[in-house]
Design a protein around this nucleic acid. Structure first.
Lengths: 231, 231
DNA sequence: ATAATTGCTTGACATTTATCAAGCGTGATA
DNA sequence: TATCACGCTTGATAAATGTCAAGCAATTAT
């Protein structure tokens, strides 16, 4: 592991204030692996044996049922996934696959659960991280139940633009079909939603999306901090 | 507080193995209050000052945005709500209102956060409870994104019947409009979904619903443990 | 360079869900 | 008992979303 990667992981809220031995034990027991795009890292229904940390790249969380599939989250560096399943030593509710060439640190779940008993500061960080993930998911549920597809798209664009601080210019880091699934619609409907949203201050050319008229998009999307503010 | 109520709370996974002083400090600092039906206990957007424990009755968690409203969960005795917001000392993402005459224990959030540092066993229980709530919400999101309204209804009925062990006979404990909102549809559409589902082994008479043909309902609803199993 | 693959878009249509309006039935109230 | 209020149901219609099919455009492979 490159020192800068170790530093980035150490800087995660989850590890930032953990004792040095805790961090060492967790990362020391972990495997840092590189994966090409499109690799399935974990499958729903299987036991959550490892806590995963996305060090580099991009990972899609998704789930299937009765022949349908949906994307639930995109994990960017440096982010963690299946923490809840690991802590409760339970099966995965989601699958994960790489969207780009990615580097992932896998820490044995057993070690994570051990660390809980040994390091109170780490435990407190786990509580905070879990609570955050919980609240993120509640926001996702509200987003899904209270909005139409086009509105979800509009708010997603506003969030992305705000997160990147790139003055309303967004370059999609993954396929539109993934975005459509994340937003809870079909690829066809994302195309149409993008067409609709062009009338509300957005321009689209391929993977390049730009918010030309911020005010107009705000009026259309009606963002709500209790759904859209980063958790 | 009646001794049997204290015992019921003590028996919550959250408190079961906590140290006696922890439990005493938390419950001692709390207020046990009775409310008639329809009372709003907490409002979204407001700081989460108290951890709430439903000792008796029934509480609906709901949220609004841009003029729309949806129900997110029903909390039964003995259940806890807004744990995540309390732990992160953040605002509520949901509102809560009583559906029946209810008895609610309110524990100051400050005390809960203090107890986190003082009692490792309690902290571990908080981690487990949070992880459980997290996973429950992910299941809710999958339910919403991967199914039609009628399918959600079918699976809700199967869950209820299984939870009560009442041989497929379900008596609704709250209005159908609440159920419709919980299932992510309008009251009108719940009526239609109930009509549809009569063709799949279910009979309805007012608030009395019965699964007459379990096999047929299973075939229609296609329950999935990764969505429907209790967490 | 050409061909083939792939993802995206568009159109036509079906299904699902929401909205608006009217009517029904039960339980509460006078 | 009669009336009223309320929640639920049903019908008609509209909006949102999904499906199927065809075509387009950019990228990849040959």
């Amino acid at each position: 592991m490159r020192p800068e990667d170790a530093a980035a992981i150490r800087n995660l809220p989850l590890f930032r204030n953990a004792r040095e031995e805790t961090f060492g034990a967790l990362v020391g027991a972990g495997f840092l692996q590189r994966f090409p795009p499109g690799v399935v890292l974990i499958k729903e229904r299987e036991p959550a044996d490892f806590l995963h940390v996305v060090v580099e790249g991009l990972v899609e969380m998704f789930a299937s049922s009765a022949g349908r599939e949906t994307s639930l989250d995109i994990v960017r560096p440096v982010g963690v996934f299946i923490l809840a399943a690991v802590l409760n030593d339970d099966v995965n509710l989601q699958s994960a696959r790489t969207l780009q060439r990615s580097q992932v640190l896998m820490i044995p779940g057993e070690r994570v659960r051990e660390a809980l008993g040994a390091d109170a500061v780490f435990t407190r960080a786990v509580v905070t991280e879990l609570a955050r993930g919980y609240r993120r998911t509640i926001k996702g549920l509200k987003n899904q139940k209270l909005r139409t597809g086009a509105e979800r798209l509009g708010n997603w664009l506003l969030q992305e633009a705000a997160a990147r601080g790139t003055n309303g210019r967004i370059e999609l880091a993954f396929e539109k079909r993934v975005l459509s699934s994340l937003l809870g619609m079909t690829p066809e409907n994302l195309s149409r939603a993008l067409a609709t949203i062009k009338m509300h201050g957005v321009s689209v050319r391929g993977a390049e999306i730009a918010i030309e008229n911020h005010r107009a998009l705000l009026a259309f999307a009606q963002p709500d901090p209790l759904i859209d503010a980063p958790e």
